[in-house]
Simulated scan of single mutants.
Amino acid sequence: MKHLSILLSLLLGYTTNIYAQSPEMDDALRSSGKIYVVVVVIAIIFIGLAFYLFSIDRRLKKIEKEK
């Protein structure tokens, strides 16, 4: 649970403005609705990585208890 709170605080508290693309590209993605697809794909990737890391952590704890 401690790891989850740290992960959430990092994801939610780490807001910086990074301008990797031009504002015209941002406006085009917003106007066509594709920005939501990008956000959903990024969210799925982060959720998948978090799930994978927590499952590895659980397996390692189980292995450490056996020794």
Score class of each variant (00 low, 15 high):
Ala20Asn: 10
Ser22Asp: 14
Asp27Pro: 02
Ala43Tyr: 02
Ala20Met: 05
Thr16Lys: 15
Asp27Val: 08
Phe46Asn: 07
Lys34Asp: 06
Gly33Tyr: 01
Tyr19Gly: 09
Thr15Lys: 05
Val40Phe: 02
Gln21Cys: 13
Val37His: 13
Thr15Phe: 12
Ile44Thr: 09
Glu24Lys: 05
Glu24Ile: 03
Val40Asp: 11
Met25Asn: 07
Ala50Pro: 00
Phe46Val: 10
Ala28Trp: 03
Thr15His: 11
Val41Ser: 13
Val39Glu: 08
Gly33Arg: 06
Glu24Phe: 07
Ala50Trp: 06
Ala43Cys: 00
Ile44Phe: 10
Ser32Trp: 08
Val41Cys: 08
Ala50Asp: 01
Asp26Tyr: 15
Ile45Ala: 12
Gly33Asp: 03
Val41Ala: 14
Lys34Asn: 07
Ala20Ile: 05
Asn17Glu: 11
Val39Lys: 13
Gly33Val: 00
Met25Thr: 12
Ser31Asn: 05
Ala28Val: 02
Tyr36Pro: 00
Val37Trp: 12
Ala28Lys: 12
Leu29Lys: 13
Tyr36Glu: 09
Ala28Arg: 10
Thr15Glu: 08
Asp27Ala: 14
Val40Thr: 09
Asp26Ala: 15
Ile47Ser: 09
Arg30Gln: 10
Ile47Tyr: 12
Leu49Thr: 03
Ala28Ser: 06
Ser31Arg: 10
Ile42His: 04
Glu24Ala: 06
Val41Pro: 07
Ser32His: 04
Glu24Leu: 07
Glu24Gln: 10
Ala43Phe: 02
Ile45Thr: 05
Ile45Cys: 05
Val40His: 02
Ile42Leu: 06
Thr15Gly: 00
Arg30Ile: 04
Ser31Ile: 01
Met25Gly: 06
Ser22Val: 01
Asp27Gln: 11
Ile44Met: 13
Leu49His: 01
Gln21Pro: 07
Ser31Trp: 02
Thr15Gln: 10
Leu29Gly: 00
Ala50Thr: 13
Ala20Asp: 00
Gly48Val: 08
Leu49Trp: 07
Met25Tyr: 14
Ala20Leu: 13
Gly33Ala: 03
Leu29Val: 03
Asp27Glu: 13
Asp26Val: 15
Phe46Asp: 09
Ser32Cys: 03
Pro23Thr: 05
Tyr36Gln: 11
Ile35Trp: 03
Val38Arg: 12
Ile45Gln: 01
Val37Ala: 15
Ile47His: 05
Ile35His: 12
Val41Ile: 11
Ile35Tyr: 07
Gly48Asn: 03
Ala20Tyr: 10
Val38Ser: 11
Ala28Phe: 01
Pro23Ile: 02
Phe46Gln: 11
Leu49Phe: 08
Thr16Phe: 15
Leu49Val: 07
Val39Cys: 06
Ile44Asn: 05
Arg30Cys: 06
Ser22Thr: 12
Leu49Lys: 00
Gly33Trp: 04
Val39Ser: 08
Val39Gly: 00
Val38Trp: 09
Val39Ile: 14
Ala43Gly: 01
Ser31His: 01
Gly48Glu: 09
Tyr36Gly: 15
Leu29Asn: 02
Pro23Tyr: 09
Arg30Tyr: 04
Val41Asn: 05
Ile47Pro: 01
Ile45Glu: 06
Ala20Arg: 08
Ile45Gly: 01
Ser32Thr: 07
Glu24Asn: 06
Asp27Arg: 07
Met25Lys: 15
Ser32Pro: 00
Ile42Asp: 06
Tyr19Met: 13
Val37Asn: 14
Pro23Asp: 07
Leu49Met: 09
Val38Asn: 13
Asp26Ile: 14
Arg30Val: 09
Asp27Leu: 14
Tyr19Asp: 10
Val37Pro: 02
Ile35Met: 06
Ala43His: 01
Val37Glu: 14
